[in-house]
Amino acid sequence: SQFIKLLGTLTGHAEPRVWHLAWDPRGDLLATCGEDRTIRLWALSAEALPAPTAAAMAAAWHCVAVLEDAHQRTIRWCEWSPNARYLATCSFDGMASVWEYNDGDFDCVASLEGHENEVKAVSWAASGTMLATCGRDRSVFIWEAEEEEYEVAAVLHSHAADVKAVAWHPQQEVLASASYDDTLKLYAPNDDDWRCFATLSAHQSTVWCLAFSPDGRGLVSCSDDRSVSLWRDLTGECGYVLAATAADVHERAVYAVSWAPEASGLGYIATASGDNAIGLLRAHFGSGTEGGNGGESQLELIGIQSDAHAGDVNSVSWRPTRPQAASTERAGWLASCGDDGAVKLWQAGS
């Protein structure tokens, strides 16, 4: 299929499984983490600028830093702060860490202790002053940052099983989580505390990942049941309802979803699956009205890239695109990682 094109493969992680990857908000640095207990940072060689072709550009990407001794066990997730100054990581060792990025150096500036065991995901709020973590202990922690000191603002026990992922609304102070209990939950501040104000049920099995659309009006989730669901905010106040479901998108569990940045102009949703494939979908919002079911919204399957990796694909992420970026070669870049130990760069769209 031609809808995504391989630009290059980055190798370096020691153990087979690369669990997660994250672009910094400028799209200049890619962080990856996995079973080998390291975090790797990848960037474009300075001498390769200005980039000639997309293929040459991918070939010029290389590992610029390896963060070791960060965690005692598998590093499951990593995420950049909105100002690109901090990288948060979390591990099966029960800890989350915050790294400060300064002139090419990374310093661990905070260790967040609180979860009883495996921490599975971490997410920064748009303000950059709040961080959410979740784990096998069924809880979601909200941490508030003040001068690099992180205080627990809330511990939420709304799910009945492992919480697999957390994601903040891009504009509002609202957090969403996905769980082994087959549901998604939404949280908002309530006086001095936080409360769960909605439970979204549609999936038949574990919800592995979730992502908001860049404007926050849409939310997409993916599951062990091989489907992808689209939720739509009909009220403008995070009143998400099920708008569409694409069943049987993949042959096996869908582990990750990523919504393309607005500036890319693509409006695509990328998926990563245990069937070794990457999928591409597009959300179409119908004329849904409040009280309705989301109108005639649709999730259109654009295509499936089979054998994207030689093993499960664990994570996929669109490269951020600056609105002012003149060059087209940055639009529609996608990174993926998998059980084959590889990190791959792709170009989507024509």
Partner: peptide
């Protein structure tokens, strides 16, 4: 069955 098919739980 659900536990055995969860690769993350198995890995942990």
């Amino acid at each position: 069955n659900k536990q055995l098919s969860d690769k993350e739980r198995v890995a942990a």
